[in-house]
Amino acid sequence: MKQSFGLKVQGSGLLVLLLALAGASVSAQEIQLGGTRAAAQKGHVVLVSDAIEVSAGKPQLVELRFRVDQGFHINSHTPKDGLLIPTVLKLDAGRGLKVVSEEYQKGSSFRLSVGSGGGQGETLDVYQGDFRVNVRLAVPKGASTLTGTLHYQACDNIACFPPKTLPVMIAVTGE
């Protein structure tokens, strides 16, 4: 039985590339991705932790949680292949906030399998669903904001998106 995995792109008529004068002409096209198109406009990762309360002064361990959209995965902080893009959290120091250390959750093993014909991809080390980064953080007394970015690259079972950067902003209360 023929099985379909990817998406067919349909145009209003056939898309034509004309080879005149070493150039080509492309007619207007409509990419019909169904629900995937809406998903394609999202970042696929969100920050779950939006506020933390810790004792002020001495470094405290806080857990920052992120969530990868269902059906997607991102590389862990330590992917097995040097060509793959690791997930990296960069937090800004300053305004009395001091990031002492970061510890990433271990990834899980994931192997892409395309179709009943057995197209097998490499075994990856990924985050799926919720994952956390434990941060040892010294905070000042009172209210402040922890800012930074999470850099990652997301794929689903049939395709990948370019690397993205998620802004991180967390309200911090030092007691």
Partner: peptide
């Protein structure tokens, strides 16, 4: 992926991985 025939005519265009048969 673009599949291009005579004179640059695109006969099919796909996004994402498809099976080898497709």
């Amino acid at each position: 992926t673009y599949y291009i025939g005579e004179n640059g005519r695109v006969v099919d265009q796909t996004i994402g991985t498809h099976s080898k048969d497709e």
